[in-house]
Design a binder for these strands. Structure first.
Length: 586
RNA sequence: GCUCUCGUAGUUCAAUGGAUAGAAUUCAAGUUUGCGGUACUUGCGAUGCAGGUUCGAUUCCUGCCGAGAGCACCA
């Protein structure tokens, strides 16, 4: 919306000899400053031109002043060390309020953002492992990954959502080892109906198996087994090999069932979380492809102690093992296959992103060195990593101990919400359950997304669902409140409202300015890949609206209704970008 | 030991090198003859320490102190 002004300023800077000048105009957040927006470009370029910033900004102000009317600027002032400040006319506000939330991208210009426009961007996230529990870490990964994908969507990219799942490897051998020790239980579980129950059982068996295996590995005291340490280790190795070779009927059957149960259960969770993957890739298919590509590029690697490694120390990184001394591919080699599968499916992809926990940061640096050498320079790689979720107090512990499963966390929040929703205005039980689900997910997503990606998250159940102001439910409440106020029977606002449909008053002015700032916020969110930027803006908007609501009777006039529905549109657009659903009643 | 990340109100988080460092919560005091009080208003309160670069530093650089993560056959 500032394009015309920026073009004029940049034109002048160009004539002064600056290459590709950028005169970004941004809204002033400080309410004590009387102007609406500002640019600091004179300060930046005066240094380059070696002249006094006040002189440069003075020239620019003069040029702009001559065209104040057509630019819809009421006043242009030179303030401070060289800020060029703008105060806009009412006409400017009306005109730009017509830009709907959906079109914000049209008005964003940032060269980096335009690069991904209409190009395929692959986002891999969640990466839950069949046979294993859907951990809190997977939950965070999913929330952050979904948001990153949505933000790239917003930037105009053709985003493909991918989940890469570890359906082979030692963790499964350990699980099957434990199941083989409990075949009677397995037969009973197999007949039972509930998939959740089966998955919980699998998780229990993994824990059992892991304990025995880990004890054997570290020469700790034996669990309930008669086998010696080396027998346990060898058995797990043997099972692992048999899974790869598909050579044992019993193991094949257990493997097939366990994998299917897990995947079916994960799908119910993805649905709950609002994720739709475009593609699932499995380690079992990635492994042979990875081995093949590794052999074709063997010159990149080195042999060491019987293993095949990449010496990252040459690049100031670590050495990583790609194939272990038994000839089996590790995660590293499988990831080469994973990438190959992605590129086979999405040939035009220009960017491949993976979301994981912070602990894998160094690993991905090494992996990307290798991938770059194998797959060339047409594709770029990014790794976003997130921190851990900690709990604020002991209240999060369930009867079994502290919550570690992601689904368990969601269900326990829903239990808390059911109590709160007893007095809800919603009488239909089905709708109520649906809303409870959406509020529960919103409360977790808000907690995860309110800080920059990469930082640890502190989850406080009390704050997440109850406390006002700093929560997902607060934003949802504000949305529902507007929906209630802007009732359909009063007026359905026209999408193409002209200036006769808005009015600027003492109470509405700050709110209008805030709505106009949405464009800038979206640009900043994409540029910094920072959901917290968008989220804190939405809180500010909700707060400003609630303040407006307290001072005005919304249904009293059409202007208030129109403005309210504009706020509703922005909230809807922003929250959906963050993967938060917006029920119209709650 | 080496490498990386991070230190901001009591607490949880913000701030492309820009104006008086923003929010939320806690605590204190208030608000409704009105569409959803899960609301609104006011107040108290912070950049770990020491230097450097700059017209200007929470941001960039150096050192110190403190926290976390990673450092080959796991994922």
């Amino acid at each position: 919306m500032f394009r015309d002004i920026e073009n004029l300023v940049e034109g002048h800077l160009k004539s002064m000899g600056i290459d590709n000048p950028e005169a970004n105009i941004i809204w002033i957040k400080d309410k004590s400053v009387m102007s609406d927006a500002t640019t600091t470009c004179a300060l930046k370029y005066a240094k380059e031109l070696n002249i006094n910033p006040k002189i440069l900004s003075g020239e620019i102000v003069e040029i702009l002043n001559a065209r104040k009317g057509e630019l819809m600027v009421q006043e242009i002032k030179l303030e401070g060390p060289g800020y060029i400040n703008f105060k806009f006319t009412d006409e400017f506000y009306f005109k730009n309020l017509n830009i709907s939330a959906k079109n914000v991208l049209e008005n964003i210009r940032d060269k980096d953002l335009l690069k991904v426009k209409d190009r395929e961007v692959l986002v891999e996230y969640t990466d839950a492992n069949p046979f294993k529990v859907f951990h809190i870490g997977h939950l965070m990964d999913n929330i952050i990954g979904e948001t990153v994908a949505n933000i790239y969507d917003l930037a105009g990219a053709n985003v493909k959502r991918i989940s890469y799942q570890g359906d082979v490897g030692r963790h499964i051998a350990i699980n099957i080892y434990a199941i083989l020790n409990n075949l009677e239980e397995y037969k009973i579980i197999k007949e039972g109906g509930d998939v959740k129950k089966k998955v919980v059982w699998l998780g229990d068996k993994y824990a059992e198996g892991f304990k025995i295996f880990d004890n054997a590995l570290h020469h700790a005291e034996q669990g309930e087994t008669l086998e010696t340490e080396s027998e346990v280790i060898n058995k797990v190795k043997e099972i692992n090999k048999k899974i790869y070779e598909k050579s044992d009927e019993t193991i094949n059957e257990i493997y097939k069932n366990g994998r299917a149960w897990s995947l079916e259960y994960f799908d119910t969770l993805y649905k709950l979380l609002g994720t739709k993957f475009d593609k699932y890739i499995f380690e079992s298919e990635a492994a042979p492809i990875g081995m093949d590509l590794l052999n074709k590029n063997i010159n990149i690697f080195e042999h060491s102690d019987g293993a095949i490694i990449y010496d990252g120390e040459k690049d100031g990184l670590h050495k990583r093992v790609f194939v272990n001394s038994e000839g089996l591919p590790t995660y590293e080699a499988k990831d080469i296959g994973n990438m190959s599968i992605k590129l086979a499916e999405y040939k035009d992809a220009m960017l491949s992103i993976v979301i994981t926990g912070n602990e894998q940061k160094e690993y991905f640096k090494v992996l990307y060195k290798v991938l770059k050498k194998i797959f060339g320079s047409d594709i770029n790689f990014l790794h976003f990593s997130h921190g851990l979720m900690r709990f604020a107090d002991g209240k999060m512990s369930s009867r079994k101990g502290n919550i570690k499963a992601g689904d368990e966390l969601i269900y326990s929040i829903m239990d808390e919400l059911r109590v709160k929703f007893e007095n809800s205005r919603i009488e239909n039980n089905e709708e109520k359950e649906d809303v409870i689900e959406k509020v529960a997910i919103a409360s977790i997503k808000y907690s995860v997304l309110k800080q920059a990606i990469g930082k640890d998250v502190v989850f406080d159940l009390e704050n997440a669902i109850r406390i006002d102001g700093d929560s997902g439910p607060y934003l949802q409440y504000t949305y529902a409140r507007i929906c209630g106020a802007v009732a359909e029977d009063i007026s359905t606002p026209n999408q193409n409202t002209d200036e006769s449909e808005f009015i600027i008053t003492e109470n509405s002015k700050d709110l209008i300015k805030l709505i106009l700032r949405y464009e800038e916020v979206v640009g900043e969110t994409i540029r910094s890949m920072g959901p917290q930027v968008l989220l804190s803006y939405l809180v500010e908007l909700a707060r400003e609206y609630n303040s407006f609501y307290a001072s005005e009777k919304i249904r009293e006039n059409i202007y208030n209704i129109n403005l309210s529905s504009r706020v509703r549109d922005v909230l809807h657009h922003g929250l959906h970008t963050l993967g938060i659903k917006t029920p119209s009643r709650m």
